[in-house]
Write a protein that binds this DNA or RNA. Structure first.
Lengths: 272, 272
DNA sequence: CAGTGGTCTAGACCACTGG
DNA sequence: CAGTGGTCTAGACCACTGC
């Protein structure tokens, strides 16, 4: 019984024909996938349940046994699907307790996507960052922003500017662009009042889970306004960190440009 | 038969007592591991074979069946050990062919650890980098270098300076520090004559495999000598990329400081 | 104690590679 | 074709959590 279509005993999802749909691979060009292992199909189904909101951020998903019964496969197959979602940080396994939907809240190392650390090793010595919202306004997407957010030009977007300080010293100036539709109702007040990572607010208030991001990093000089906000001169080199953050299915949901002051902090990266 | 010591049927490695040795975890403080799964112990044995040179760079290691027989465990257990080494990029699986020792040579995307890409998407459009060795000399480790390379102060080190150009434009200035002992015999000539990634030369000529690295990134201004070598003014902001590269067992084997020109290139990073 | 994820096994079969 | 890694199953037992 090699890779038979799954009779999805729930919801309305069409059974994935075994020799058809894409197994999400990056081999590109010519070669047809032509074969999708069962656990990959299960992975797609789990992804759908995550995306549809069937399972909330931070909540437990059904046990491996339950899922195995639901999809009519062995526990080992469900396990392999969950394993991959766990290494992608979409799910979190906790032995003895269950498997949970990953979240940007509660994440004791808050700011999961922020790679800036103080020179004196300990990220906690400075305490939490002080956040100051400079601006939050509606505008229309420039050609550049539209392209990066998969929008049409001039579509409405929300634009946020804020400064993060560590030990009372302004260190990061961020400009954000968000598609207006999913974030309807976001204001400077709600941003200012919320105590926690911005991505956690996005999850709980707007149901948008940031799952993955890409950053392009350059060395730049600030313009006079940026220099003022960071309290540095216009000749101080800064790290420009341009991030595009994605939800499920690689849908871009945020474009963010950060200017990092790196005299007492550094951007950390690990290579394998 | 829960996690019984392995009667290592080869070499001289002592059998790892089941309730003793560290499973290489980062939980730190207080908590004793107290339990090491079989596949983790297999992983350690595989690591030893890699480190000892029993399996050469780029060569195939024994089949999963063979390893299962050698260690007297099931194929699935060997599989899980290899899986982890593969995700850490120490091994490369190739269906139908075997499992191979990862190498910096042949890696069609040469420069595995270089995250700098041209703005116009395609990394191949510029062709291979032009390399120019500026200097290669023996010296003694400063306190800073010694600390980063786990050496004693003033221990002999090799120091290399080179410039990488893309499309004939100088783009990267690198300073390297290597512990002298493992790299005895390295000269500017050998570096200049070698056609391929430097880490590939380290593998084939000195048996040193770089397995992992950490980078600290900052925005800086070049001093006059650096500016000259890159052909820019002293007010051009540059990316400072300080890398420490490690072999097996987290032994540091290289400290490298790169200055990247980021007007037509960017440093790319992926977040999960 | 029951329920969860984690480990280990044994065996069958599939997909891919190369001679 | 034989040999390799890849998938899938079924079952047993272990480690951890919380009641």
């Amino acid at each position: 019984m090699p890779t038979e279509p799954i009779s999805t005993s729930s919801l309305t999802s069409k059974p994935l024909a075994s020799e058809s749909e894409s197994p999400i691979e990056m081999t590109a060009v010519i070669a047809t996938p032509s074969f999708s292992p069962l656990y990959q199909q299960i992975k797609v189904l789990l992804l759908q349940s995550l995306q549809s909101g069937e399972w909330k951020s931070g909540a437990a998903i059904p046990s491996e046994q339950d899922l195995a019964l639901r999809y009519k496969v062995s526990q080992g197959t469900v396990r392999k699907a969950i394993d991959e979602l766990a290494t992608e940080n979409l799910l979190v396994r906790r032995q003895g307790k269950g498997t949970f939907v990953a979240t940007h809240a509660e994440h004791h190392v808050q700011y999961r996507f922020l790679k800036l650390f103080p020179d004196n090793g300990d990220p906690n010595s400075e305490g939490p960052a002080q956040r100051r919202i400079i601006d939050c306004k509606r505008s229309r997407a420039s050609a550049d922003i539209a392209k990066k957010l998969d929008l049409r030009s001039a579509e409405p977007v929300l634009q946020v500017r804020r400064v993060l300080s560590f030990a009372s010293k302004p260190t990061i100036l961020e400009d954000l662009w968000l598609p207006a539709a999913p974030f309807k109702g976001l204001t400077a007040e709600r941003l200012g009042n919320y105590d926690g990572p911005m991505y956690a607010l996005f999850e709980t208030e707007f149901g948008v889970r940031m799952v993955r991001a890409e950053e392009k990093i350059r060395a730049v000089l600030p313009d006079s306004e940026q220099a003022l906000l960071l309290g540095v001169s216009s000749t101080t080199p800064l790290l420009s960190v341009e991030r595009i953050a994605y939800t499920y299915n690689d849908v871009p949901m945020e474009m963010r440009r950060g200017l990092y002051l790196t005299d007492t902090h550094y951007y950390r990266n690990e290579l394998h």
